[in-house]
Design a protein around this nucleic acid. Structure first.
Lengths: 139, 139
DNA sequence: CTGGTTTTGACAATCATTATCAATAAGGCG
DNA sequence: CGCCTTATTGATAATGATTGTCAAAACCAG
């Protein structure tokens, strides 16, 4: 009963597809991508692979404001955060050491353990900001 | 055509139920609470009222790690963050001025506008930490 | 009260995700 | 090399939250 994790091309395919996508992507989106690429992979398998990668620490997962789970390849064992354009999906990795400490501090000050802080900033990137402004001007 | 927002007992009921619940609560949970309290309110109406309150700034909304939308009565003007026990739901409001500034700073440094930072810390409160420890010890 | 409009509410539709379960394929062992 | 055990896959059903639909009811003004 030694965990016995088998090596399948499907898992590799998901890992690779995740790695070659730029920002965060939903499981559904990744599934579509894989299908486009010719892999006859199953949807359920994509979900399982993503969950597995997330547990193993090879992928980052977060909830979009719309309630979808988004995933991203995350090579670093380190813990970092993101600045995500809520219009075009552009993602920038940001440093958050100060916030890290703050979260730890606040958590333990209240007796909490295992703080999993959700520190992601959604906004509009420069281009989308401009678009939004002109759209509003004409409205 | 002045917005014409009507005053219905249903909206009040949702507002009140939200106010009297301790921490964050899901729309479904709030619906159950209201039904228990005797209000024959409809589920769709609860969703609409919550969305409306969130837009008006009277309610805070966030995504739980499980992907549900959680709501909470929130003082209209202030913007604050939360420390939430992911086991028992205990919620503590936390000050985050430093993080506020940091988010603004990071966002504008990257050309982003309208930063909606998601800064919530999920953890295990003291009681649940103890429980988890003993559970693991016996496992 | 009456009219015009908004809002409600029951239910269907949608969407993402998870469970089911037989068939497949991986990996070890003889 | 081929077999056997068992993890894994994948099509589909099930689930669960949320949103859309639309006729009926409620609200406000005149």
């Amino acid at each position: 009963m030694t965990t016995a994790k088998r090596n399948t091309w499907q898992r590799e395919a998901v890992r690779e597809a995740l790695g070659s996508s730029d920002g965060f992507i939903s499981a559904q989106g990744l599934y579509s991508n894989l299908r486009d690429g010719g892999s006859p992979i199953g949807l359920a398998t994509v979900y399982r692979a993503l969950a597995s990668l997330a547990v193993e620490g090879e992928a980052d997962s977060l909830q979009s404001p719309e309630g979808e789970a988004l995933y991203r390849a995350c090579s670093t064992t380190g813990h970092h955060h993101h600045l995500i354009c809520r219009n075009c999906g552009l993602t920038v990795e940001i440093e958050a050491d100060a916030v890290e400490e703050w979260a730890q501090q606040v958590a333990s000050a209240n007796g909490f353990t295992e703080p999993q802080h959700v520190v992601d900033v959604f906004g509009l990137c420069r281009d989308c900001s401009a678009q939004a402004r002109s759209a509003q001007a004409s409205a």
